[in-house]
Design a protein around this nucleic acid. Structure first.
Lengths: 213, 213
DNA sequence: ATCTTTTTAGCACGAATGTGCTTGATCCGT
DNA sequence: ACGGATCAAGCACATTCGTGCTAAAAAGAT
């Protein structure tokens, strides 16, 4: 029972990460339903028993993979938001930093595309699979927090009321998720330029909203 | 080879529709991956062989189900758009009809929720499964056409340029899909009121966009 | 060198799935 | 009444999946 030798714990964590990245590759190319233990083991160059040594079950592997992709996205968002905060609102660099932040949601390069695929797949799977529910809620909270802070920073001063704030946060969030969806599902109709135009238009509408009611 | 008797073709089509609706119920409650022949047969109260008599393969059943949900959504959109066209732009009834049209995308009641679930599930599955590719493209074209016509009608006169038009169409489409996604995946954070507020805000931003570049 | 722990690999079982094929049951025109 | 077409139901086979279990290989500690 005593653990007197500490042989390879570091390697173990690295192994888990390798397996998780194999999961990501499979989900991005073949979908979540193909991310079985055998497929993952093959992709990672291991045997099924080996994968099962690091992850007690298939569910644990998938939940952990979901958590990893959430952490990666949240980290990117936090870093990009810090850049936004380093500029004064109104500056051209500020606006560029905001665009860069929002671009972290979209599959604009290979790495972002894989994360976006995996993220979408897990979020949709979480509607059905209770094991993923908790991480899906965490994902939503993390992203909504960053978007909420961003909206608060971008809205015109004078305290536009809590209600309008949540409305604008949800509006931006919905636009981002919709853009991401379209970029993943209809890439032939969705260029990076259209994405950028949509986002800049949206940002332009954030400040000047004629009171509708 | 000659078909001289016309015994039950009407019933046959009705049967196919019953099976398709069983598929819808299964996808809405348990996800697309549970829509196997046996599950569908059980849900429809038939035997596997019977379902296979009306649909040559599992793929044909799923592709046909995808087509049916697309047609249903497209029909709803066309009808709602006809209502919009029946009012002059600017009238209060016109705006209400526009909101009703956009609401057809969202899971605001039981029937809309099932269709939204099924639609989302098939569109995401089409990213991986080539058999669904064609219908997914048709779905996108049909919806984009309606949204494009609506945007053309709502944008301020004077011809705002083709580029801005596709940008605004894509912006509205992305917002709609994002709202639908959130309503399906995070219903606890997304009320019908928030949906309506987001849509009215978006519509308010459609006309008055300060030229950003 | 020996022992203990970790790592890797594999087998086997039950469950679920798509599909080819066969067998009754039903219905309609002749 | 009879024959042919259609419908309903089921069996059987190969595949894939998760998982419990066993066992060999590797590596560090003694």
């Amino acid at each position: 029972m005593l653990k007197r030798s500490v042989p390879k714990i570091v390697d173990a964590e690295a192994r888990r990460q390798e397996v998780v990245e194999a999961v990501f590759r499979i989900i991005a190319s073949d979908g979540l339903e193909r991310a079985s233990l055998r497929e993952v083991a093959d992709e990672a160059g291991l045997a099924v028993g080996s994968v099962r040594h690091y992850f007690a079950s298939s569910d644990e592997l998938l939940v952990h993979s979901f958590a990893v992709v959430i952490d990666r996205i949240a980290k990117r968002l936090e870093e990009a938001f810090a850049v936004v905060e380093s500029f004064a609102p109104g500056l051209a660099e500020h606006d560029a930093a905001v665009l860069t932040l929002l671009g972290q949601f979209l599959p604009l390069d290979e790495e972002l595309a894989v994360d976006a695929c995996v993220w979408m797949a897990f979020r949709h799977a979480a509607r059905i699979r209770p094991v993923l529910e908790q991480e899906a809620a965490r994902s939503h909270r993390a992203v909504a927090a960053v978007v909420g802070r961003l909206v608060m920073r971008l809205m015109p001063d004078g305290g536009p009321g809590q209600e309008r704030l949540v409305t604008e946060a949800e509006r931006l969030l919905a636009t981002l998720d919709g853009l991401c969806m379209h970029a993943l599902l209809q890439p032939e109709w969705m260029t990076a330029e259209v994405c950028r135009d949509v986002l800049t238009t949206h940002l332009a509408t954030l400040g000047a909203v004629p009171s509708s009611r």
